[in-house]
């Protein structure tokens, strides 16, 4: 499989050094490591919301430092650790996020399909504010998944979920991504999930940081 993201000699500020990285197209690659080893920072450098002090990141063979960052972020889409939903219905959230990107929103059936993929089969008219943390997280992920990026980066996607739901959701997401040629990059603390779903693992260790 060809690489979709490669990174060499990456350093962030003076604090973090990263091993050379290769993410294969269509794979599910997990980033593991203890707190403070730069997992989230790595994802942020991949979508150019953070800039490395040194090193190069290539996306599809192109240096991301020379790419339009807005276009890059839509192709290398990061669903961050902090879940944000508008104070609106589930449908309203889909509509608002798409409107912010200046895109036509997907249809009702498609929305319901993505919610099912993320194990949250609530009616689209459900208001999001009263939902639990885990339910919000799944709606949040469904919106991201529906945007059909080339690479979907998930930062602790199962943090608020119980083990059973986490497994079921990740397995459905992985299958969907594999079918649609979407590369998954996942930061996870949970060794059970890594063991079950990772095609490749990028270990970030204390030694890697100065």
């Amino acid at each position: 499989m060809p690489a979709i993201i490669t990174a060499t000699n990456l350093r962030f500020l003076d604090k973090l050094r990263f091993p050379d990285i290769r993410v294969e197209q269509g794979s599910a690659t997990f980033i593991c490591g203890e707190s403070g080893t730069g997992k989230t920072t790595l994802l942020k450098m991949f979508n150019a919301t953070a800039t490395p002090a040194e090193g190069r990141i290539l996306f599809g063979g192109q240096d991301i430092a020379e790419m339009d960052t807005i276009a890059l972020r839509r192709q290398v889409l990061l669903a961050g650790q902090k879940v944000y939903l508008f104070d609106d219905t589930i449908r309203g959230n889909f509509e608002q996020f798409y409107a912010y990107r200046g895109e036509t929103c997907i249809g009702t059936d498609e929305m319901a399909g993505y919610l099912r993929l993320c194990c949250i089969e609530f009616p689209l008219s459900t208001r999001c504010q009263p939902l639990s943390g885990g339910e919000k997280q799944r709606v949040f992920l469904a919106v991201h998944l529906s945007m059909k990026p080339k690479v979907l980066m998930l930062d602790e996607p199962t943090a608020a979920l119980d083990k059973k739901t986490a497994k079921r959701m990740l397995s459905q997401m992985k299958e969907h991504c594999a079918d649609n040629g979407i590369t998954l990059v996942v930061v996870s603390h949970d060794p059970a999930l890594v063991g079950a779903f990772a095609d490749a693992v990028i270990p970030l260790t204390e030694e890697a940081c100065e």
């Binding site: 979508n47 919301t49 960052t69 807005i70 276009a71 890059l72 972020r73 839509r74 889409l77 990061l78 669903a79 961050g80 902090k82 879940v83 944000y84 996020f97 912010y100 990107r101 200046g102 949040f140 991201h144 945007m147």
Partner: peptide, 9 residues
């Protein structure tokens, strides 16, 4: 942060 990550201008 969420909107920035989604590629919103």
């Amino acid at each position: 942060e969420t909107l920035q990550n989604m590629g919103v201008k």
